[in-house]
Design a protein around this nucleic acid. Structure first.
Lengths: 352, 352
DNA sequence: TTGAAAGCGATACCAT
DNA sequence: ATGGTATCGCTTTCAA
C-alpha cells in the first residue's frame, strides 16, 4: 500500500525537472527536450510504474474526462442495462470513462447524485431510466453538457436532448408482422397504463390495423401490467372457454414477460404455439426472449444503440462546444427504431 | 454554465480570509472565529450556494470518500444488481458515495478500471460479480482496502476478504423443504457445470437426501444450464412419456428461469403445479419468481445482505485501519445464508 | 481572532 | 533545451 510515484519522483530519477517530465510524457518532448533526456524520462517513468494522478489533473485542467451517468434503477433492476453498455462503448472509444450512480427510484437522490458528480468535475452528464418516462431534470444537469436516454425533459420548456425508442413504429411493425402472417384477429396485451410507452405502442397497433382496414375491437386491447401473471390472466380472459371462432389467433404483448404469461396460459389450455396461437413479445429481453419455448418473436428495443447515440451527442457537445450540430436546438429528440426479431412463437394464421 | 463559487468567493463576500471560511464550514469555528464572522460566512456560503470542490478536497486530503465498485457485468446484465444496491445503502449511511464501472465480462478491462478508479483516489474498492465465481484479483486492488462480493480470490494465497452466499445450505434447505412436504422422488435440475455454485448446491441437495436416508439417483441430478429452454428440456426428459410411478414428484431447480421452463413443460404435459408436480426455484429473481403462475417457491439469494456485509467490512478497514477485526486475516470468508421463500409452486406429495 | 503561506500533483508559461 | 513559478481549490499550521 505504498504511495504511488509522482512526476517529481520521475524527474528526480531521470535527473531533470518536473516540466520536462510533463512535456515528454505528453508527447511534446520533441523540440523542447534533448533526445537523451527524453529516453531517461521515459525509462524512469516505466521503472516507477508512473501514471499521472487524475485528481491533480482534473483540478489543473478543470476537466476530468469522466462522464457521470445517473440512473433511476438501471443497476439494481434487471432491465435496460445495455443503454449504459452502449454509452460506455462510445465513451471509451473517445478516451472518456463513465461512472454510474443509481438512485434506486428515490427522486430526492437525483439532485445529490448530480451534485456529487459535478463536484468531481465530470465533463458531462447522462440520465438513464428503466422504461420510457418523463423526467424532472435535476438542476445541476444544466450546468454541464447533458443528455437524456430513455426519458425526456418533463418541463414546459425542455432544455436537454433526449434519445428514445420509436415506440409507435415498434407497435405498428409488431402488429404488422402478425398481419403479414395472415392474422386478422389480433389482440394487444398492453403494459401498465402509467407508462408513457403504452399509449404509443397501442397507437402503433391501431395504425397497423387501420392500414389493413381491420376494425379495432376495443375489448382486444387490454391494459394488463408488465409481469408474467398479468400476461397469464390477460390471456386466460381472452382464451379460456372462448370458442375457437371467437378467439384471437394472435396476441401481441407489450413486453416479453407478458408473452411468457401468455405462453403459460396457452400451454395450460392445450393450445400449441404458434400452430393455434401466435405470440409476440416486445423488448427482446436478454435471456428471456431467445430462450423461451418456443423462442419468442419480439420487437427488440435498441438499447445499445440508444446509449451509443446519446453518448455521441453528449461527446459532440463536450468536444466541439458551440460548433455542435445540436447547439441552439434545446430539447431536440432522437428516435431510434426498434427491430423486429422473428423467432418461433409466431406463424401463419390457423385455418378454421 | 457559469463557474461555481469557491471558498475564496465566500471569503470575499463575508469579508474574511479563506482559512476562516474553511474553519467555520467544517464546524471548527467556535473558539477560532468570532461569532459575527461565523454568521456572515455562513450567510455568504448560502447566498453563493457554495459547496466545496470535491476534487480539490481529494487532492488535499488524499482521500475522496468515494468507493469504487468494479463489476464483471452486473450493470448490463439483469442479475445481482441488488448487491450493489445493498452496498450503496451502507456506503451512503457512512457518508461515502459509490461509483460503478462495468467491464462487460472483458477481463482485460479489470486492471484498467481499477487503475482509473485508483487514479481518482477512491478510498476503497469492491469487486462484484454476477454469479459466484473465482476471480483473478486485479493487482491494483491490493493497494487500497478492498473486498470481494459474490466472488473469491483465485490465487493460492488469497489476500482479500470475500462475501458469498451459503450455497450448500441453500441447496440443502431447498431440497429439505420438498422432503418436509413428503416428497421422496426429488430431482435436481442444476445449472451449467462451469459455475462453482452448481457443485455446492448439488452437495446441499445430496446432504438433504442423505439426512432423510433417501438414496441418491444420479439420473435425477441433471446439469442443464441456466435458461428457460434448459429447464424445459430437462423437465421433458424426466416427465414426458414416463409413468406417474416413475416420475419425480418434485423438481428443485438451480435458478428461477429453469423453474419457468419446468412449469412450461408441466403445463404442456397437462400436469398441474403443485398438485401433480412441485417446482422449486432458486435466486428469487425480481419480477420472475413472485409473478410466475403459480408463484415460485424459491431459495432467495441474499443479494442486498451480501452487498451490505461486504461494504461494512470495507468501511471498517477504511475507517479503523489497523485496529480492524479483519486485519491480519487475509482471505477471510463471510457466508451469508440464503432464505427460503414459500409460495405456490410447491405442495404436498401427490397420493399415488 | 485573523490572515499569510505551504502543500496536495500536474501543467504551462516564461525566463534563463 | 531547461528549470523555476504560478495556478487549480482547499485545509492546516503558524505567526502576528
Amino acid at each position: 500500500m505504498q504511495r504511488k510515484a509522482t512526476a517529481l519522483d520521475v524527474a528526480k530519477r531521470a535527473g531533470v525537472s518536473r516540466s520536462a517530465v510533463s512535456l515528454v510524457l505528453n508527447g511534446r518532448g520533441d523540440g523542447n527536450v534533448a533526445k537523451e533526456s527524453q529516453d531517461r524520462i521515459r525509462q524512469a517513468a516505466a521503472d516507477l510504474n508512473y501514471s499521472p494522478n487524475a485528481i491533480a489533473l482534473s483540478l489543473r485542467n478543470q476537466r476530468s474526462r469522466v462522464i457521470g451517468i445517473v440512473s433511476d434503477e438501471v443497476v439494481v433492476s434487471p432491465f435496460d442495462g445495455n443503454i449504459i453498455g452502449g454509452a460506455d462503448d462510445v465513451a471509451r472509444a473517445h478516451g472518456f470513462v463513465t461512472v454510474v450512480m443509481d438512485t434506486e427510484l428515490d427522486a430526492s437522490r437525483d439532485e445529490s447524485a448530480v451534485e456529487t458528480l459535478l463536484d468531481r468535475q465530470v465533463d458531462g452528464l447522462m440520465y438513464v431510466t428503466v422504461g420510457l418516462k418523463p423526467l424532472d431534470v435535476p438542476h445541476g444537469m444544466l450546468r454541464v453538457p447533458s443528455v437524456l436516454a430513455n426519458c425526456y425533459d418533463n418541463s414546459p420548456t425542455p432544455q436537454l436532448h433526449h434519445v428514445i425508442p420509436d415506440e409507435v413504429s415498434g407497435g405498428r411493425e409488431a402488429t404488422g408482422h402478425l398481419l403479414q402472417l395472415g392474422h386478422r384477429e389480433v389482440a394487444f396485451l398492453a403494459g401498465a397504463a402509467t407508462s408513457p410507452a403504452v399509449p404509443l405502442r397501442v397507437e402503433g397497433h391501431r395504425m397497423a390495423l387501420a392500414e389493413a382496414s381491420i376494425p379495432v375491437r376495443e375489448d382486444r386491447i387490454i391494459m394488463a401490467g408488465w409481469d408474467i401473471d398479468d400476461g397469464f390472466h390477460g390471456a386466460m380472459k381472452m382464451l379460456d372457454g372462448v370458442s375457437p371462432a371467437e378467439r384471437p389467433t394472435a396476441i401481441a404483448c407489450a413486453n416479453d414477460r407478458l408473452a411468457v404469461g401468455v405462453a403459460l396460459a396457452a400451454a395450460r389450455l392445450g393450445l400449441s404455439v404458434p400452430r393455434d396461437l401466435s405470440i409476440m413479445g416486445y423488448d427482446d429481453e436478454f435471456r428471456i426472449a431467445a430462450t423461451m419455448v418456443p423462442a419468442l418473436t419480439t420487437m427488440a428495443l435498441p438499447l445499445r444503440d440508444m446509449g451509443a447515440a446519446a453518448m455521441s451527442m453528449l461527446l459532440e457537445q463536450i468536444e466541439n462546444p458551440g460548433s455542435s450540430t445540436v447547439e441552439g436546438h434545446p430539447g431536440l429528440e432522437t428516435m431510434v427504431p426498434c427491430r423486429l426479431v422473428v423467432r418461433e412463437s409466431t406463424g401463419p394464421v390457423p385455418s378454421r
